[in-house]
């Protein structure tokens, strides 16, 4: 069964004067343990789609099922609980909590979201911090590490809760190309090790090639991939 099932998903934004069609009848499936990328120019609907998959927003029409749940049925509290249980997020600007150390940033969702007991928490954080190669920087604060290191911490934070799906919106946009490759390679390795599905958006043509499944978005429509009339790039 597909981890994500999108069926004729549309998203419109009403302004005072016009209606913006951010997504138009998008249909696709994403299987578990996939390494998927949505590509497209700015304004093509990548972020809108990731926000919908991430239960941060709701479709105007159509059905979007993530991990067996129709996200349109979730209220604010239910959405938070769903995200905490099933999803991990990696942001373009890293979005680490500045008052917490590297270790504490990774530990944060286990305490604040999943209420994991201390012993298990320590084991999981130690394992994840080691997996992303940040053990030596565990006690440092975000302002004391580089952009690539921050994104590695963000990857660890997203994976430490053992989510089924990690969403990354332009995860390499603020990194140099070498670091970007390192981060993408890390994400791929984590997918291989943990079986987590990764869905990320990018407009970096060099990174696009790292995706195993590729969807191209143009003006809110799927230009290539499932539902576009063309097979997705594998």
């Amino acid at each position: 069964m597909a981890l994500i099932q999108a069926s004729n998903v549309s998203k419109d934004y009403e302004t005072e004067e016009v209606t913006v069609h951010a997504l138009r009848r998008v249909t696709f499936d994403i299987e578990p343990a996939s390494f998927v990328s949505f590509v497209g120019p700015s304004g093509s609907g990548k972020t809108t789609l990731l926000n919908l998959i991430g239960c941060l927003d709701k479709p105007s029409s159509g059905q979007l099922i993530v991990a067996g749940t129709d996200i349109a049925t979730l209220d604010r509290k239910g959405g938070a609980a769903f995200r905490g249980k099933h999803l991990g997020f990696i942001f373009q600007d890293f979005n680490l909590i500045p008052v917490l150390t590297v270790y504490e940033n990774i530990e944060y969702p286990l305490i604040m979201v999943q209420n994991i007991p201390p012993t298990e928490r320590r084991e999981r954080v130690a394992s994840m911090i080691d997996a992303v190669g940040m053990s030596a920087q565990a006690a440092k604060f975000p302002h004391q590490i580089s952009g690539g290191q921050k994104q590695r911490v963000a990857v660890a934070r997203a994976l430490v809760t053992h989510p089924a799906l990690v969403l990354a919106d332009e995860p390499t946009a603020n990194l140099d190309s070498q670091t970007a490759y390192t981060v993408i390679a890390l994400m791929k390795r984590m997918r291989d090790d943990l079986g987590t599905t990764f869905v990320f958006s990018t407009h970096d043509t060099k990174i696009v090639g790292e995706a195993e499944v590729l969807f191209r978005l143009e003006d809110g429509r799927l230009a290539t991939g499932q539902g576009s009339g063309e097979a997705p790039h594998v």
Binding site: K77, K85, F89, D93, M112
Partner: peptide
């Protein structure tokens, strides 16, 4: 605000 958005996005319950 962005920090609040981040912790809310990763699933921190509103009560927390």
């Amino acid at each position: 605000i962005r920090e609040i958005g981040t912790i809310a996005a990763i699933g921190t319950p509103p009560g927390r």
